[in-house]
Amino acid sequence: MGKLTLAELRELRERARAEIARRESDAGGGDVVVGLGTCGLAAGARATLDALVEELNRRGLVNVTVRQTGCMGLCHSEPTVEVRVPGMPPMIYGKVTPEVARRIVEEHIIGRSLVSDHIHDRPAPDIAAGLGAGR
């Protein structure tokens, strides 16, 4: 790192802020939960997760928390991704390839419309209630 000017310091801060923003426990922009059980991993969930994070970062959506979970029991449609963002119904997507993951960010999180061809299910009512719908 060479000597910084004021403008360079500010630019560096913006970039660095995005890098560590995901360390906050709850950033307020909703949750995206990727199933990383054995079934999910075998179906390529790691690549899905990386694609999600990359796409969110690329679009500056640092307040969306990306979390991981184990097997949701939907092993036949892994990788599964559950999306809960404010103002949208909680949704589970199935067979989420990196390509679909990028569409989820663009269409569901930014565009506020469901990615219809990959909807698997809504979370079980008790889970959705416990978490607060739309959160």
Partner: peptide, 15 residues
Amino acid sequence: NIREYIAREGYAGLE
């Protein structure tokens, strides 16, 4: 890592 300090509003007070 100074970068991480800067990310958390580091050196913004000095600015």
